[in-house]
Amino acid sequence: SPISQSQFIPLGEILCLAISAMNSARKPVTQEALMEHLTTCFPGVPTPSQEILRHTLNTLVRERKIYPTPDGYFIVTP
């Protein structure tokens, strides 16, 4: 029987999409709110552990794709 394939999207890209959507909705993007958003909006995607989430967010900050503030994470705009 054929095996169904799913699209692979890197966690960093999913986080950027989620942060962008939450920023547009003016929702604060904390790590907890981000986990909740991922569970709700990406039900088929396994939720990352806190450690993996933190590591991926730090990587995105180093890559200058997002930036942290006391009010949460935001997408870097050119």
Rank of each mutant, 00 (worst) to 15 (best):
Asp71Lys: 15
Val29Thr: 04
Thr56Tyr: 03
Leu60Thr: 00
Phe74Thr: 10
Ile14Ala: 12
Ser1Leu: 04
Phe42Asn: 15
Pro70Asn: 14
Pro10Gly: 10
Thr39Lys: 05
Ile9Ser: 15
Ser49Glu: 03
Leu60Glu: 00
Ile52Asn: 01
Ser1Phe: 07
Asn58Met: 07
Leu38Gln: 00
Asn23Trp: 02
Leu53Val: 12
Val45Arg: 08
Cys16Lys: 05
Thr47Tyr: 05
Ser49Phe: 00
Ser1Asp: 11
Ile52His: 13
Thr59Pro: 00
Cys16Glu: 05
Gln7Phe: 08
Arg62Ala: 14
Glu51Asn: 02
Pro68Met: 10
Ser6Leu: 05
Gly72Thr: 05
Leu17Gly: 11
Thr39Asp: 15
Val61Cys: 14
Pro28Ile: 07
Pro43Arg: 07
Asp71Pro: 03
Pro48Trp: 02
Thr47Asp: 02
Gln7Arg: 11
Val76Gly: 12
His55Asn: 15
Leu17Asn: 15
Ile66Met: 03
Ala18Asn: 02
Glu13Arg: 15
Val29Gly: 01
Ile66Trp: 00
Ala21Gly: 08
Ile14Val: 10
Ser24Trp: 03
Thr47Lys: 13
Arg64Cys: 05
Arg62Leu: 10
Ile75Asn: 04
Gly72Gln: 10
Arg54Thr: 03
Ile75Asp: 05
Val61Tyr: 03
Thr40Ala: 04
Thr59His: 14
Cys41Glu: 12
Glu36Ile: 08
Phe74Val: 12
Glu51His: 14
Val45Met: 06
Phe42Pro: 09
Val61Gln: 11
Val61Ile: 11
Leu38Cys: 02
Asp71Glu: 12
Glu13Asp: 12
His37Thr: 02
Gln31Val: 11
Gln50Leu: 12
His55Cys: 10
Ala25Cys: 09
Gln7Val: 08
Thr69Arg: 11
Leu38Ile: 07
Asn23Pro: 01
Ala33Met: 03
Arg26His: 07
Leu53Ser: 01
Leu34Ala: 01
Gly44Lys: 11
Cys41Phe: 13
Arg54Asp: 02
Pro28Gln: 15
Asn58Val: 12
Asn58Lys: 08
Arg62Phe: 10
Pro10Phe: 10
Tyr73Arg: 09
Met35His: 13
Leu34Met: 03
Pro78Asp: 01
Pro68Ile: 09
Lys27Thr: 14
Arg64Ile: 01
Leu57Glu: 00
Pro10Arg: 15
Ile66Cys: 13
Val76Ile: 02
Thr59Ala: 13
Thr77Met: 04
Leu38Phe: 13
Glu63Gly: 09
His37Gln: 08
Phe42Val: 09
Pro43Gly: 06
Thr30Asn: 02
Thr69Asp: 10
Thr40Val: 11
Ser20Asn: 15
Arg64Phe: 02
Leu38Glu: 00
Glu36Leu: 08
